[in-house]
């Protein structure tokens, strides 16, 4: 929270703004240059690492999770609805893409859009009753839903392969979204991250974005402003789940083998999306990307270095990050950056 004296310093009463307050509210077009610059920097990073297939691999995962955390942030950060069900939307997207490809021969490039639609539909349907609950109770209900999905996933063998899992044969070809080189996957995930980022900017710089934040801050005040709270939550959830479903489809096409227990893992997906958003900065546009750039490479390193000797070591470190951020860094990397910027701009007298 900004302390009152800081805020007072931020807008001295005597200083009459040169430009009107309305013109300083950023629109989509106003935010776009920064978003494109950030995407350009990430593209530069891919180019710089293009010879190193190990680094490209980690980068691809990082960008996938950046896009997924950004998607979670729409409903979790801006909307303040702490969903633990996103691994379900992720899995729905994955199995939709995989089944369309394996059984009907539909290219994953088309399948991911069906995945987006189905994930959004599942999300809206499940959230409708659950959105009566607030805060931790919403989180509990979504967590329970993950367990239910796992039971159904293991049960519906024809769609998921059951506990034995499901695999996609290695058939090289751009139409199959199956590549040999790591660069192609990095570019694929970059495309996903860019899509997610642009959707986040579009939502954030729109009426819906403001309505989501109003619902997060105070539902009663939101209603008094004419906002249909349930409808806003459902819309935010559907957009968030649609992006998550696309991410699930891309993930499955990259790993090509998974079982429901892996796809619906709370620690590996559902909670990790939230964790990355928290580390980067909840409810910020670029926080999830920053969070992913820190967490995913760190986790890869931990897995490689100590994962073999100490099972679960990477999750121990992640959980310490989670607790530490909750206690000491509530606004994440973006929050720390803003605090530093505020201090630099206004040195203490």
């Amino acid at each position: 929270m900004t302390s009152p004296d800081l805020a007072a310093a931020a807008a001295p009463r005597d200083a009459v703004p040169r430009r009107s307050a309305a013109s300083r509210v950023k629109t989509f077009a106003g935010e776009l240059p920064l978003a494109l610059l950030v995407l350009g920097l990430v593209a530069g990073l891919i180019w710089a690492l293009s010879g190193d297939s190990f680094a490209l691999n980690i980068l691809a995962t990082t960008l996938l999770f950046a896009g997924l955390a950004g998607a979670w942030n729409i409903i979790g950060g801006f909307g303040g609805q702490f969903s633990l069900a996103h691994s379900v939307f992720f899995a729905v997207g994955a199995y939709t893409t995989a089944n369309l490809y394996l059984k009907l021969g539909i290219s994953p490039w088309l399948g991911i859009w069906a995945a987006a639609a189905l994930s959004a539909a599942v999300a809206a349907l499940v959230s409708w009753p659950v959105f009566r609950l607030r805060g931790p109770f919403f989180a509990i209900a979504t967590m329970a839903f993950t367990e239910v999905a796992l039971a159904i996933g293991n049960y519906a063998e024809s769609l998921t392969g059951g506990t034995r899992g499901m695999s996609i044969p290695f058939r090289l070809g751009i139409q199959n979204m199956i590549f040999r080189d790591r660069l192609s996957y990095a570019l694929l995930m970059f495309g996903f991250m860019a899509l997610s980022l642009l959707v986040v900017v579009a939502v954030n710089r729109s009426r819906l974005g403001y309505y989501l934040q109003a619902v997060r801050d105070n539902e009663q005040a939101a209603r008094a402003a004419g906002i249909g709270v349930l409808r806003v939550k459902l819309t935010g959830m559907a957009i968030s789940a649609a992006l998550t479903g696309i991410g699930g489809g891309l993930f499955f096409m990259q790993v090509r083998v998974a079982d429901p227990a892996a796809m619906l893992s709370l620690f590996e997906f559902g909670v990790k999306f939230a964790l990355i958003a928290l580390i980067g900065g909840l409810g910020t546009i670029y926080g999830p990307l920053l969070g992913a750039l820190v967490i995913i490479p760190l986790e890869n390193w931990l897995r490689a270095e100590i994962g073999g000797t100490l099972p679960g070591a990477n999750l121990i470190v992640l959980s310490l990050f989670l607790i530490g951020a909750a206690l000491f860094m509530k606004h994440g990397i973006v929050g720390v950056g803003r605090a530093i910027a505020a201090r630099v701009r206004r040195p203490r007298p």
Binding site: F82, A313, I316, I323
Partner: peptide, 29 residues
């Protein structure tokens, strides 16, 4: 862990979920 997070429901979820992950994986390790 929890006293500093009074009135911050989202952070409480993160903190107690973090504790869940921590205990489970420490025992696993």
């Amino acid at each position: 862990l929890l006293a500093p997070l009074r009135n911050e429901p989202s952070m409480q979820i993160f903190a107690t979920f973090g504790l869940l992950m921590l205990i489970e994986n420490v025992v696993l390790a």
